[in-house]
Simulated scan of single mutants.
Amino acid sequence: MKKCHIAYLACTAALMGTGLGAAPPVADHTVHVVHPGESIQKAVDAAQPGDTVLLTHGTYHESVDVSTPGLTLRGVGRGTVLEPAAGASTAGTATSTAPSTAPSTGSDASKGSKGTKAATSCAASGNGICVVGTKDHNVDGVTIASLKVTGFAKTGVYATEADGLTVRRVTAEKNGVWGIATEQSVHGLFHDNTARDNGDAGLFLANSVKEELGATDTEGTVVEHNRLEGNRIGVTVRRLRNLTLAGNQLTGNCAGVFVVGDENKPKAGFVTVRDNRIERNNKSCPKTARLDALQGSGIVLTGAEDSLVTHNVIKDNVGKSPLSGGIVLFKSFVGTTSDRNRISDNLLRGNSPDLVNTDTGKGNTFEDNSCRTSKPAGLC
């Protein structure tokens, strides 16, 4: 099929000399090569589980739905760019202050197969790349890699009901709501991405923004070595459990990291935030219907339990918000306390103040942190 469909054998069983047995049979996989001006969606729809859709250098004006398990959608780096199609709504017309606004997965979400209205509605509603499964059947093992998504009204890369999603070396920039976002997903891996100047969170991970549900166990999702800058919030973890944020760099946001829970059961928690560098998140963002004005927040925990914040470097986060400070334990707006969280072995300098605890929860500990100022006094 000319440029759009180039097949190759990923592995070939072979005899390697006298006395050596044949290698175990391995399924053949196809690489579908797409060039600017050709349809990414057609290549994705033609792909089988385990295939790769490779986007060459250039700009593509398209949104894409992925529901094929094991598919890899990969570019060649920042030179592969996805932008909205001509006439589509752009980030400039989107409401950037509504983290409760989820990308629509459509009224036919129960279908969930390739080419359904469910998948189409996600991309058509203002998102760049959509990975969409269903409550009855997750889409498994999808990888999005080595490309840039920019200017979409809602989210650059959005996934729901995904198991084992990998997003790596993706730049998500100037999207109206989120840079990269997931809901109701498990076993995710997000690494070496850049999320910059998005309307809400650079990385947003949640159970659901449309339903009042207890926190979801992500079964070990990892967010590591990402760069988050210029967003409203660098990383938001909302109503989730069993997740790690490690080795990320967050700067120039209104707030660096938010771990958010509420009154539902189970509570959010068992989140580890470690070895991150969080500096100068002093952009000013106005109050929204869900959240007070933000400025100068490094890490905020609210309505969370049994979480660990450790070995982070947190510097020069200064603002006038009730949530300002290097590490802040803040009582949730629905009155849920944070309990049994451990804040230890962090280096904090120049924050206003370094440590804050306005929560009335039980069992929270601040120990062995290198810091100078706290509210109330005595936490350092």
Rank of each mutant, 00 (worst) to 15 (best):
K2W: 12
I6K: 15
I6Q: 15
A7H: 15
A10P: 13
C11N: 14
T12F: 11
A14M: 10
L15K: 15
M16W: 13
T18L: 11
H29T: 10
V31L: 09
H32N: 11
V33M: 14
H35D: 15
K42G: 12
V44H: 01
Q48E: 13
D51P: 03
D51F: 01
T52D: 04
V53D: 01
L54G: 08
L54K: 11
L55D: 02
H57Y: 15
G58Y: 02
Y60N: 06
S63C: 11
V64N: 05
S67D: 10
P69R: 07
L73R: 01
L73T: 00
G79M: 05
T80R: 10
E83C: 13
E83L: 15
E83W: 08
A85M: 09
A86M: 10
S89N: 14
S89K: 13
T93D: 13
A94N: 09
S96W: 09
T105D: 13
D108E: 07
A109I: 08
G115A: 10
T120I: 12
I129L: 07
C130K: 06
V132F: 06
D136A: 15
D140A: 14
A145W: 07
V149T: 07
K154T: 14
G156F: 00
E161Q: 15
L165P: 06
T166Y: 12
R168E: 11
V170L: 03
T171I: 07
A172S: 10
K174L: 11
N175G: 06
G179D: 02
T182N: 03
E183Y: 06
S185C: 06
F190H: 02
A195T: 11
R196A: 06
R196H: 12
D197H: 11
G202M: 03
N207P: 06
S208K: 07
V209Y: 06
E212L: 14
E212F: 12
L213M: 14
G214E: 05
G214M: 04
D217Y: 05
H225D: 12
L228T: 10
N231D: 02
R239W: 05
R241S: 00
Q249C: 11
L250W: 04
T251D: 07
A255E: 04
G256L: 02
V257R: 00
V260N: 08
G261R: 00
D262R: 11
E263A: 14
N264H: 13
N264Y: 11
K265Q: 15
P266E: 03
V273C: 00
V273I: 00
N281I: 00
N282R: 06
K283F: 08
C285M: 08
K287I: 10
T288H: 13
S297Y: 01
S297L: 05
S297P: 04
G298A: 08
T302F: 03
T302E: 04
E305W: 00
E305G: 02
S307G: 03
H311A: 12
N312K: 01
V313F: 08
I314K: 04
I314C: 12
N317V: 06
N317W: 04
G325Y: 01
G325D: 01
I327L: 10
L329G: 02
L329M: 14
G335P: 05
T337R: 07
S344R: 13
D345F: 01
N346L: 00
N346E: 03
G350M: 05
G350S: 07
S352T: 15
T358N: 06
D359Q: 08
K362P: 03
N364K: 09
S374G: 11
K375Q: 15
A377K: 01
G378D: 02
